[in-house]
């Protein structure tokens, strides 16, 4: 904050400035190019989106000399949340939102837990080959998600995928015939666990995203672990605390300030993980693993219902706004912790 005081003093002193242009004008000139681009290509379309969402804007309105779309009031907004979308079979806004939230939280819980555990293991004093493991564990972060998603999609293929072949090879060691490993990861409709309405493709997506997500959490946790003073552990071990006690009483509480913001970031990223869902499961089977962003894309790309898509996009933005405000609140609330 001290730095702001300096700027202010510097701003105040040469009120007119030696070179004529006042400093605020110079500042605006620096900001102008970015603002112009964003005004034209981000803010204006979002405003236009509000107008579109009240119309039945469709393919026929795209032509240059096309008539204006019909004003339909709140029809799009109402249709979306009352399952009035008949063009897409099995469309359920609330079911999709529930899945989207469950998908997000279940993934981030795995990411954070696994991330912390592996960071603690990697941080064990005297561990050999530490650098080697760190180098390998960074790989899921550096490979583009697009490529990861397409690769895992093929790995989950029923007939030729690496997962089923690997399981068959493993099963062969125990005398199980390969026929048992003809698992239809992506399109089996019956839920694998009776009573729990999650299709097998959810678990395929979960496996993929765990592979993708834990290394980031490990890096964050490693950074935080290295800043924990060793004296806490010394004192605890002198007092006779076991390793497990030290983990829960010292390590976890001191990791919290670093892990909470990382988890919040993870929540937003996972909530919008388009590539993974679109490319691995395609939202299937029967739209059971569809999330908001993949549906938004389908409404434009497949259905070409631009008005409806605009309304859907506005819902998505509102939901994200609420989610962001909530996570920011939690992050802020935990900042003072420790």
């Amino acid at each position: 904050m001290a730095s702001f005081a300096i700027t202010e003093a510097a701003t105040a002193a040469p009120a007119g400035s030696r070179r004529g242009a006042p400093r605020w004008l110079i500042a605006y000139m620096y900001i102008l190019p970015a603002t112009l681009i964003m005004a034209a290509i981000t803010y204006w379309p979002i405003l236009f989106q509000v107008y579109m969402s009240f119309t039945d804007y469709g393919l026929r309105n795209l032509r240059f000399d096309a008539p204006a779309p019909n004003f339909v009031g709140l029809q799009n907004f109402i249709d979306l949340i009352t399952n009035g979308i008949t063009v897409i079979p099995n469309f359920s806004f609330w079911g999709m939102l529930a899945f989207n939230l469950f998908w997000t939280f279940s993934n981030v819980i795995f990411h954070v837990t696994i991330g912390i555990l592996i960071a603690v293991v990697l941080n064990t004093p005297g561990l050999r080959f530490r650098g080697f493991y760190r180098a390998i564990f960074i790989l899921p972060i550096v490979v583009p998600t697009l490529v990861v998603a397409t690769v895992w999609r093929n790995m989950f293929d029923t007939d030729y995928g690496a997962i089923n072949q690997g399981l068959a090879a493993l099963g062969g060691l125990f005398g199980v015939t390969p026929d048992h490993f003809h698992i239809r990861w992506i399109d089996q409709i019956d839920p694998p666990i009776p009573g729990i309405p999650l299709p097998l493709s959810y678990f395929a997506l979960l496996i993929t995203n765990i592979w993708l997500g834990w290394p980031f959490m490990t890096i964050v946790a490693t950074g935080a672990l290295q800043s924990i003073s060793k004296e806490y552990y010394e004192a605890a071990s002198i007092d006779g605390a076991s390793g497990v006690q030290q983990f829960f009483r010292i390590t976890l509480p001191l990791l919290r300030p670093a892990m909470i913001p990382a988890a919040m970031y993870g929540l937003i990223v996972t909530f919008n993980l388009f590539n993974l869902i679109y490319m691995v499961s395609g939202g299937g089977p029967l739209r059971q693993t569809e999330i908001l962003v993949t549906t938004a894309f389908r409404l434009v790309n497949e259905q070409r219902l631009y008005g409806l898509a605009a309304a859907f996009g506005i819902y998505t933005m509102i939901i994200l706004l609420v989610l962001t405000l909530l996570t920011n609140r939690i992050t802020k609330a935990t900042e003072s912790y420790v």
Binding site: V293, F297, L299, G313, L320
Partner: peptide, 11 residues
């Protein structure tokens, strides 16, 4: 996410 504003951007 850019996909939430895809429709107006396209139009």
């Amino acid at each position: 996410p850019s996909v939430a504003a895809l429709a107006p951007l396209f139009v």
